[in-house]
């Protein structure tokens, strides 16, 4: 019995420091989130369900992405949105409006506008290209259980002075290293947006959220649910996909 106890203590002493070091290092947690969320390439078919003042609007679109830096989105429905295409290359966003048959490069005010009427802004798209660990410094808060999932709770503060969301509070699933809930704060400390992951799927070795909901706290009675209907990782996407020619096609 003593022998077993000795082995157990020895085992704990060997494993525990690694565990605790891993659990308490926000940088490492951010690293793991980033590696889950970044991919070489992906094709996805999605639905955006916007609920605003008792109205529900469903928008369907498909997207092609390479890493987190390049993506091409094409809206399929409703009729007024059909044919609207968004091209994102690094931090540059261009939109093609079929009604005007014009391409618009977004800048300034427009980046902060709601993306296609949703709770997300165009800026939310570009800021997702950045890896969290490169832009924020993390601080561990008290662990919490969120909908039955053990979570690390991290408070991230931007290293840069100019950042859309200066602080982010993230509930990270301890097992899957996915941010299950995120509260986004402005520099003045005002809660701007809240996002929650509703469903996660395992794709080969990667956990990826397939359903999430975002609420823009500055819009009353509004939320946007994004559902990934289909997603293929690491597929071949030609570079030509991310050009203005494809927007006009």
């Amino acid at each position: 019995m003593k022998k077993i106890l000795f082995i157990l203590i020895l085992l704990f002493m060997v494993i525990a420091p690694e565990f605790t070091a891993e659990e308490k290092d926000p940088f490492d947690i951010l690293n793991k989130i980033d590696s889950n969320m970044t991919f070489e390439s992906a094709y996805a078919e999605m639905e955006m369900i916007i609920t605003i003042k008792k109205r529900v609007i469903i928008k369907k679109f498909k997207s092609y992405s390479i890493g987190n830096t390049r993506s091409f989105i094409e809206f399929l429905s409703p009729v007024r949105d059909r044919g609207t295409k968004i091209l994102k290359k690094d931090k540059i966003i261009k939109i093609y409006y079929p009604s005007a048959e014009r391409i618009l490069r977004l800048s300034g005010h427009m980046l902060r506008q709601s993306m296609m009427g949703s709770d997300m802004s165009y800026e939310d798209m570009t800021e997702r290209s950045n890896k969290l660990r490169e832009e924020y410094r993390g601080e561990m808060l008290q662990n919490e259980v969120l909908v039955g999932n053990e979570c690390f709770v991290l408070m991230l503060t931007s290293i840069k002075k100019k950042q859309t969301y200066f602080k982010r509070k993230i509930w990270v699933d301890k097992r899957k290293y996915i941010g299950l809930k995120e509260e986004l704060y402005s520099k003045s400390g005002k809660l701007v947006k809240v996002s929650k992951v509703i469903s996660i799927k395992l794709f080969n070795n990667r956990y990826y959220p397939v359903e999430m909901i975002m609420e823009d706290k500055l819009r009353k009675n509004s939320s946007t649910r994004i559902v990934i209907k289909k997603i293929d990782f690491n597929i071949d996407i030609p570079d030509e996909m991310f050009t203005e020619r494809m927007l006009l096609k």
Partner: peptide, 16 residues
């Protein structure tokens, strides 16, 4: 100029 806005059904619409 291009005028861009969301319509009453939250679709983005633009006209030159």
């Amino acid at each position: 100029i291009l005028l861009v806005t969301t319509d009453i059904n939250y679709s983005t619409y633009a006209l030159p």
